[in-house]
Simulated scan of single mutants.
Amino acid sequence: MQLYQLQQVHSFRIIEVDIDSNPQLIEQYGSLVPVVTCEDKQICHYFLDQAAILQLLENNQ
């Protein structure tokens, strides 16, 4: 929910992935769900790190 609120202020695309449907993703992220990544780089897991996401958005402008 918080990620969608950030999306209303900043322009970025959210792609939701069902990790349970992919054995490779289960092995990579299984215990870290939920996880936020950008271009295969892990930004945060367990909880949304809004500061880390905002920093990433500012650096990519």
Rank of each mutant, 00 (worst) to 15 (best):
M1Y: 07
M1Q: 12
Q2L: 15
Q2P: 10
Q2G: 13
Q2E: 11
Y4H: 14
L6E: 07
L6D: 04
Q7L: 08
Q7T: 09
V9G: 04
V9N: 15
V9F: 03
H10G: 01
H10F: 13
S11I: 02
S11H: 13
F12Y: 09
F12A: 11
F12P: 11
R13E: 12
R13K: 12
R13Q: 15
I14A: 03
I15M: 09
I15D: 15
E16I: 07
E16P: 05
E16S: 14
E16K: 13
E16D: 14
D18R: 02
I19N: 00
D20S: 11
D20N: 08
S21L: 09
S21R: 11
N22M: 05
N22W: 04
P23E: 10
Q24K: 05
Q24F: 00
L25D: 08
L25A: 11
L25R: 00
L25W: 11
I26E: 12
E27Q: 12
E27A: 15
E27C: 06
G30I: 05
S31G: 06
P34W: 00
V35D: 05
V35L: 04
V35H: 03
V36R: 06
V36D: 01
T37W: 02
C38S: 15
E39S: 15
K41S: 14
K41A: 12
K41P: 02
K41F: 09
Q42V: 14
Q42H: 00
Q42F: 04
Q42T: 13
Q42P: 02
I43F: 00
H45T: 07
H45L: 06
F47P: 02
F47R: 10
F47V: 08
Q50I: 15
A52M: 04
A52S: 14
A52V: 03
I53K: 07
I53A: 00
I53G: 01
L54C: 11
L54G: 04
L54H: 07
L54S: 06
Q55Y: 11
L57T: 11
L57E: 06
L57F: 08
E58D: 07
E58K: 11
N59R: 08
N59L: 11
N59C: 01
N60W: 08
N60T: 06
Q61S: 14
